[in-house]
């Protein structure tokens, strides 16, 4: 399962961050998740709730997920459009020469800790 693998890495990255900054407890973790990152938010949160208990610095933390809308760039008509609504084909000129500008990221934006 995809979400589980990512949660394991998130927990490990946070453990390392805590060690580096000498943090004893992380309270809030703000994660930015792109609309087409392939991460299912509910499943991700469930995995997080399950795994955080195994990490002493994370056990009382809460996960806040900020969605990032996906935007596609059309290289033919040089416009942008909503990826989820229109997909790969540009709604203006029907070109397929289009690229995802943003929306597939999964980034730890910030944490609250002591």
């Amino acid at each position: 399962m995809h979400e589980m693998g990512i949660v394991l890495h998130l927990a490990k990255t946070l453990d390392e961050t805590a060690a580096e900054h000498q943090l004893t407890a992380i309270g809030k973790v703000v994660l930015q998740v792109g609309e087409v990152s392939g991460i299912m938010t509910d499943l991700f949160t469930d995995c997080w709730e399950y795994f955080k208990g195994r990490h002493p610095v994370l056990k009382d933390s809460t996960l806040v997920i900020e969605p990032i809308p996906a935007v596609t760039w059309c290289d033919s008509c040089k416009r942008t459009y909503e990826t989820v609504r229109y997909g790969k084909e540009c709604p203006y000129c029907h070109s397929g020469e289009t690229w995802l500008l943003r929306g597939n990221e999964c980034v730890i934006k910030e944490i609250e800790a002591e």
């Binding site: 890495h9 990255t13 730890i108 934006k109 910030e110 944490i111 002591e114």
Partner: peptide, 17 residues
Amino acid sequence: MKLLKLDACVTASNDRD
């Protein structure tokens, strides 16, 4: 509690490994 801005990839630990 203090706020730390990270902007880190979730898989940063994997990239180091």
